[in-house]
Simulated scan of single mutants.
Amino acid sequence: SDGTRRSDGTRRSDGTRSGDGEREYPFHLYLYADYTNDSENRWETATYPNLITSAVTAAGGQDYGDYYQKEAWAAELEALLPIPGRIRLASGIQWEKHTSFDSELLQDWSLFGSHDPRRPNPRIDDGRLTSLTLRLGNTPEGRAGARPSGFGSQRAFEVRLEHSLSSTLAPEPHQPEPFSPPFQRPETLTFTKLDGEIRWSMPTFYQRRFFPNALHLTARAGITFGDLPLQRFDAIDGSLFQYSPFGVLKTRRHLPYEGDRYWLIAAEHDLQSILFERLKIRPLVDQGTGIILFATAGQSISKRRFLDYQPITSDGVHLEAGFSINRIAGIFRADVAFRMDQPGFFIGVSVPRYF
């Protein structure tokens, strides 16, 4: 269906006349259906698309993911709401079957044959899951559209809710360590998961310039009620090899933190080339080279204590700060990060920020 608010001063169906200055906000409904039968990453990364993680693995780097087999049917109804901001509200249902990979199906391989043995791929909570989903946001691509671009300003948000209707997902039998705290292992895993993210940019100083100084913020958080399956855990990303884009914990190397509860806040202030202008270093000013100051904090928590595999959590708040030299030769950015809660240091590269 389609409805539109008029902005040309014409008469509405109720006999009133709209103002000449009003904008049009169309209302649209979309229906999506999807079938998937493929291998999936066990955790959801908010930063790295599969193309990047696969390229690192193929080049001989450490595999960033853990994998399982998923067969799923999904249907979703999405509404583009007739309000400013192109806000989208969507509700859907998913029928899924999750299966752990057999170890003999996993192979050590890289393009040039120079790589370390692949780390073990942990088993998941096998079974079937039917769940309802609800999401609200302003990105047509959903979660992928809310990923930080790193090179430009963003104003995007999304909130997601998933509730399990029926589940045969069950944890593997596990013998607890001696003297460990008592717990009751559930026969099946049921849960309600709420998470979301927001990315916001705003000009700060020298706003009359074509590229003013700007503050860029991103925040993510999630909480689970019930027992979340291992393959629904979220991840707080770290640096991938020496690649460290905006929105990750740069001093967290290789594998991400994971958990059924988490939060992350990242901020960076792009000072553009102001410092080099003050120092009268004309070659850097002419190239547009600038300075960025950044700070990031995050924490992940897992209450799962009945697994042979224990999720990698942050064990407290991970806090870091540092600076970047931006647009070196106009094509890349060098990051220098210092961990603040304990000793740690990182030097990496990422895409340059232009605005």
Rank of each mutant, 00 (worst) to 15 (best):
A59V: 10
T57S: 15
K97Q: 13
G61L: 03
A72N: 03
Y68I: 07
D63W: 02
I87T: 14
T53E: 06
L80P: 02
G85K: 05
Q69G: 11
K97N: 13
I93S: 04
T99K: 13
D66P: 00
W95Q: 15
P82F: 05
W73C: 02
I93D: 06
G85I: 12
E96F: 00
Q94S: 13
Q94P: 00
A72E: 10
P82A: 01
S91I: 14
P82W: 06
V56A: 11
S54W: 00
R86W: 02
I93G: 08
W73V: 11
E71D: 09
L89D: 14
G85Q: 05
G92Q: 10
K70Q: 15
G85Y: 08
K97S: 15
K70R: 15
E96N: 06
D66V: 02
S91Y: 08
K70S: 13
A55T: 14
K97P: 02
S91N: 11
P82N: 05
R86M: 14
I87E: 07
P84D: 08
G85L: 07
G60Q: 03
A55G: 11
V56Q: 12
I83G: 09
A74N: 13
Y68P: 05
D66A: 09
P84C: 06
K97V: 12
I87W: 00
Y68T: 03
Y64H: 13
Y67W: 07
G61Q: 00
A59H: 11
D63I: 12
E78C: 07
A58N: 08
E76Y: 00
S54A: 13
W73A: 12
G65W: 03
V56C: 08
P84L: 01
A72D: 01
E96H: 04
D63Q: 13
G85V: 13
A74I: 00
Q94G: 02
I83C: 00
Q94Y: 09
A72G: 02
H98A: 10
E76Q: 12
Y68G: 03
Q62W: 00
W73N: 08
K70M: 13
A58R: 03
A75N: 07
T99C: 04
L80M: 12
E76A: 01
A58I: 02
A58G: 04
L77C: 07
A79D: 10
A59D: 15
W73D: 04
Q69A: 10
P82S: 03
E78H: 03
L80Y: 05
G92S: 07
H98T: 06
A74V: 08
D66G: 10
H98K: 02
A58L: 05
L81Q: 11
L77N: 06
S54H: 11
Y64Q: 10
A75G: 14
G61F: 00
